[in-house]
Simulated assay, not measured.
Amino acid sequence: MSEHHTGPVEVGAEMNYAEHEKTYSAFLAMTKFGTMLVCVLMLAMVAGFFTSAGLLGGLVVFLVLSAAGFVLLR
């Protein structure tokens, strides 16, 4: 703190805004689809464990809802 700078203080490298936008878009897509998959997994587990659907019924629920989710979230 006691240093006295006589020249301009560097604030970092120049921002690459195009790359920043691509990274942010990828983050949003991963968040959106990841949330959808976790919700679908929970619904499939409910169908598989708490109903008479069993393992195969839960798997069918997971596959159908995952396909519907991917189509609807595009």
Rank of each mutant, 00 (worst) to 15 (best):
G7K: 13
V11N: 12
G12P: 09
V11A: 06
L55H: 03
A18Q: 06
A47P: 02
M42P: 03
T31R: 14
C39V: 15
N16Y: 11
C39Q: 09
C39D: 02
S25N: 14
F49V: 02
E19W: 10
L43S: 06
A44Q: 02
A47L: 04
V46E: 01
V61C: 08
V61P: 10
L59H: 00
K32W: 08
K32H: 10
C39N: 05
S2I: 04
A29E: 09
E19M: 14
P8Y: 08
L72T: 08
V46Q: 00
A67L: 13
E19T: 10
S52C: 00
T6L: 10
A13S: 09
L73E: 08
E3C: 06
V9I: 09
L55S: 06
L41G: 09
G69K: 02
F62G: 03
A13P: 10
A29Q: 14
E14Q: 12
L43M: 12
V9G: 02
Y17H: 06
A44G: 07
S2M: 12
A68Q: 04
G48F: 01
A67K: 06
T51S: 05
V40M: 05
E21C: 11
E14P: 10
S66T: 11
V40F: 14
T35Y: 13
A44Y: 01
F62I: 01
V71L: 10
V61G: 01
A26R: 15
F27R: 11
A44H: 05
V64R: 07
L59V: 00
L56M: 14
V71P: 01
E14M: 12
L28K: 15
M15A: 09
E14V: 06
A29P: 03
H5P: 01
G69C: 03
S66G: 08
L28C: 07
L37W: 11
A47E: 00
T35S: 13
C39K: 06
V60S: 10
L55R: 03
L37Q: 14
R74W: 08
C39P: 03
A18H: 09
H20M: 09
L37S: 12
E10G: 06
K32E: 04
N16R: 13
E14W: 15
L41M: 14
Y17C: 02
T23C: 03
A26S: 13
L65H: 11
A47T: 05
L28N: 11
F50P: 00
E14A: 14
P8R: 15
G7I: 08
T51W: 06
L43F: 15
S25Y: 09
L28V: 09
N16A: 07
G7H: 11
G48Q: 08
L73D: 08
A26C: 09
S52H: 07
A47K: 04
F70W: 08
A13N: 04
R74M: 03
R74F: 06
E21Q: 14
L41H: 15
A67G: 07
F27T: 07
G54M: 02
T6E: 10
L28H: 10
L59W: 06
A26P: 00
F33Y: 15
G48S: 12
L73V: 06
G7Y: 07
